[in-house]
Structure formats: structure tokens, C-alpha cells
Amino acid sequence: MIRLYISRIARDRLALAGAVMMLLLIALAAAAPWISPANYADQNLTERLSPPSARHWLGTDDLGRDVLSRMLWGTRVSLVVAFVAVGISTFFGTLVGLIAGYFGRWADAILMRFVDILLCFPTFFLILMVIAFLEPDIVNVMIVIGVTSWTGLARLVRGEALSLRERDFILAARALGASNSRVLFVHLLPNVAAPIVVSATLGVGGAILTESALSFLGLGVQPPDPSWGNMLSAGKDYIYFAWWLSVFPGLAILTTVMAFNLFGEGLRDALDPRS
């Protein structure tokens, strides 16, 4: 089975490119302490804002810190933030969606009304919550992104479960006396796995983008810890006269988010039991 999936992905060139990119990024993140040419926090105020050169491949920032080293450490920070946040949101989204869609009636009504309440809040309430309870440190940023982004998935899963519920194979399983949890996790879950996987991979990208948006407001990961998001938003102020400060983090976010999305797409096709 697994070999089949791998061979399917290998045939899909965009997904393969995404997968290679992803592995590369994870490797870079893991190796950051050893391959960074300099300490990401070391300032050299005489070399402020110097453009890319042989000494500093990606230039230096407004405190004379090596941008390449900061980018490498930023890979770590950004990926960890995204993975944890997506883990949280996928867990809640799937669970709530399945239960509501499968059981229907009261479970559905209560859970979906709760989801409805949450869905009525636009993004800026997320920001309010960040400052209401918490300080914008890295752990809180992950939790807030995760806890506020599961509702979409819940509705999607619930919609799928709702239309699958009346399908023959589910009806058959129930007629044969399968327990609810068995029907839920053995029969329903695999059939809604594809949208969950797609949503989770899109979610990694989404979380990286949300962190950068929070950074734009100054509420993301705080300096001196480098994340791509806070580097980009700091670089924004220099977009016209020190382009390297925003272009490299911007491109890093772009390629990473794309890598995860392309891979997720490929995975979706490969996991599809009917193709």
C-alpha cells in the first residue's frame, strides 16, 4: 500500500518537487546551528544594512546581523510554529466535524452552533485574544493560531460526513452492528482523510502566513528571535532601499508554503482510494 502511494507521488512532478523542497527545509532547520555562517544574534553596527556580498551572502539587517544566518534559524522557528499550530487545529477540526456529521441531531446542533459562534468572529478577534490572555511569545502564537483555525476544517469534515452518512457502506456497517466509534474511525475517517490531509497541508502554509500577518501587526514571534514573518515585516520598512531584507524572507515564505501545498495536493491524489 505505502509503496503504491510513494510510486504515485513519484509520478506527480509538482508534488515530488514539493516533497523534495519540504525535506530540504526540514534538513536546513535541523542543521541551522551548524551551517549558519554566523550567530544569528551577533550585531555589527558598523556593517548595518550592507547588501549581499561574499562576506554576507544575503546581506545584513538594520543591526548589522547576518541575514543568511537569521534566515536559517528562522526556518526552524517558522516551521515549528506552523507544525504545532496545524497539529492543534487538525485534531480539533477532525474530531468535532466527524462527531457532528455522523451523529447528527443534538450533537450536530450543539457543536455546529458553537462552531457558528466561533465562525462569526473575524480574524481580528484572534488578535484580540492574543493580547487579551497572552503575551506574543512563540508558544502563545502557536496556540492561538491552532485554536482559532480549526473551525473551517470542522465544517468541511462535517459536510463530508453528512453526505457519507447515508451512503450504502456506512448503512451496511451499521446494519451489521458495528459500534459508533468503529463506524466513525474505521469506516468514516478513511473516507474523509483526503480533505483532512489537503486541509492540513494547506494549514501549514496558512499558519506560516498567519504568523507573518501577526508579525505585520507586531504580534507575532518577538525579536530578537528570528521568524520569517518578523524578518519580513521588519524588512518591509526598508523595502525601497534595502530590498534584501524583505525579498529573502518573502521568497522563503513563498517557496515553503508552496512546497507544502504542492506536496499536500499530490498526497491527496495519491491517497485517494478511488483513483
Binding site: 509538482l14 502554509g205 507573518s212 515585516s233 518591509k236 518573502g250 513563498l254 517557496t255 508554503v257 495536493e265
Partner: peptide, 25 residues
């Protein structure tokens, strides 16, 4: 399909405030 997938992802993957500034410039 391939090309549109690619470009649609570029649009989706780019931080919005950055792309907005680039387009403004």
C-alpha cells in the same frame, strides 16, 4: 492544469502585505 495549479499556489503562498507593497512599487 499544471500551470494553473502552480500559479494559483504562488498567489496563495505569498504574504499579502508583501505582495501588496511590491505591486504598489
Amino acid at each position: 492544469d499544471k500551470i494553473s495549479t502552480f500559479f494559483v499556489y504562488v498567489g496563495f503562498s505569498v504574504p499579502t502585505f508583501w505582495v501588496a507593497l511590491l505591486l504598489m512599487i
